[in-house]
Amino acid sequence: MHTIKAHAKVNIFLKITGHKDGYHTLFSRFMRVEDLYDTITFEPCECDTFTIEGCDDVPFESNTIFKAYKALNEHTGDLDILNFFYKHKVVVTKRIPSQAGLGGGSSDAAAFMRLVKEVCNLMISTQELAKLGSTIGADLPFFIYNYPSANVSGFGEIVEPFEEEPLSLELYTPDIGCDTAVVYKTFKEHLLDNITLCSSIGWEKLDSKTLLELIADPIILNDLYKASLIAYPELKNVAKEGWFFSGSGSTFFRLV
């Protein structure tokens, strides 16, 4: 068997910088969550077709792992990938909650791509893999580079490692799912015209602990928080003082 961890992430800050070609551009600090991860395993199995177990709540065609499999096949044309998955199935052990702003689906797909590269000896660089991953989802390049912390910008394809001590974080995910597409659509309709690009100048140089202590306001740190509150007003009832908001939600986090 071949196994890899697919870690969750939090957004220390997330600022929307514009809208182009139907997508939002961003400026964010991603931090890997060391103690929360899904597990992707390639188990020996005679399979007639590409097989994924453990993601029954996601339609097969919509599964990011399946999208990653298709993208790798189309990009590389490597028959070793096809042959490998006639003899192995993909088993996903889920621990990262869905629609929680933690990047679970993207992390799973990125970990899958990294493991396929290893087991099939693909002649593809990490940079090329990240570029391919960006066609599947904006968070994939960060997970493919696998940095503990990074400044992420553009459509998510610009990933610059940030050297800092790992933070000890406590996560709190209420029983509310926030659909990323809905949150971004809400932001575009209600908040896009009010973005202030100068509000986060210099943030990329500050370590995450300093940022959380210095700014200390989850709405200022994360532009998508206000959009999530508009789209999912029930979040107001579960928000806690001193907690920050990750991505498009619904997970809150704080320093411990």
Results as ranks from 00 to 15, higher is better:
17 T>L: 01
151 N>C: 14
45 C>D: 13
152 V>P: 00
87 K>L: 13
59 P>L: 08
134 S>A: 15
16 I>D: 00
38 D>W: 10
100 A>H: 05
96 I>F: 08
110 A>D: 06
17 T>Q: 01
152 V>A: 00
53 E>V: 05
111 A>P: 04
117 K>C: 11
33 V>T: 07
110 A>K: 03
45 C>W: 15
46 E>F: 13
104 G>N: 07
77 G>R: 01
27 F>C: 11
147 Y>D: 09
135 T>I: 04
59 P>I: 02
28 S>H: 03
118 E>T: 15
30 F>S: 07
30 F>D: 10
95 R>H: 15
26 L>M: 09
85 F>E: 05
111 A>G: 02
149 S>A: 14
128 E>P: 13
93 T>F: 13
58 V>H: 12
100 A>S: 13
102 L>I: 03
41 T>Y: 11
22 G>N: 05
136 I>R: 00
121 N>V: 12
154 G>M: 06
56 D>L: 13
67 K>M: 04
150 A>T: 10
48 D>W: 05
117 K>N: 13
83 N>P: 01
17 T>D: 05
86 Y>A: 14
113 M>H: 04
119 V>K: 06
132 L>A: 07
142 F>T: 08
124 I>E: 06
34 E>C: 13
61 E>T: 11
126 T>P: 10
107 S>F: 02
135 T>Y: 08
126 T>C: 09
146 N>W: 09
145 Y>T: 03
24 H>P: 03
72 L>F: 02
30 F>N: 07
52 I>T: 10
156 G>Y: 00
16 I>K: 00
95 R>P: 06
105 G>V: 08
58 V>A: 06
80 D>Q: 14
109 A>S: 08
123 M>Q: 14
31 M>Q: 15
107 S>A: 12
130 A>N: 10
131 K>Y: 09
32 R>T: 08
46 E>N: 12
91 V>W: 06
22 G>F: 01
26 L>N: 01
147 Y>A: 05
139 D>Y: 02
137 G>N: 10
23 Y>K: 14
72 L>V: 09
38 D>G: 08
52 I>S: 01
148 P>H: 14
140 L>K: 00
33 V>Y: 02
43 E>C: 13
43 E>F: 08
27 F>S: 15
72 L>M: 06
38 D>Q: 09
148 P>W: 10
66 F>C: 10
49 T>M: 12
122 L>R: 01
49 T>F: 13
122 L>H: 07
121 N>A: 12
128 E>A: 14
43 E>D: 12
50 F>A: 00
137 G>C: 08
19 H>A: 08
97 P>C: 03
111 A>F: 02
129 L>H: 06
22 G>S: 07
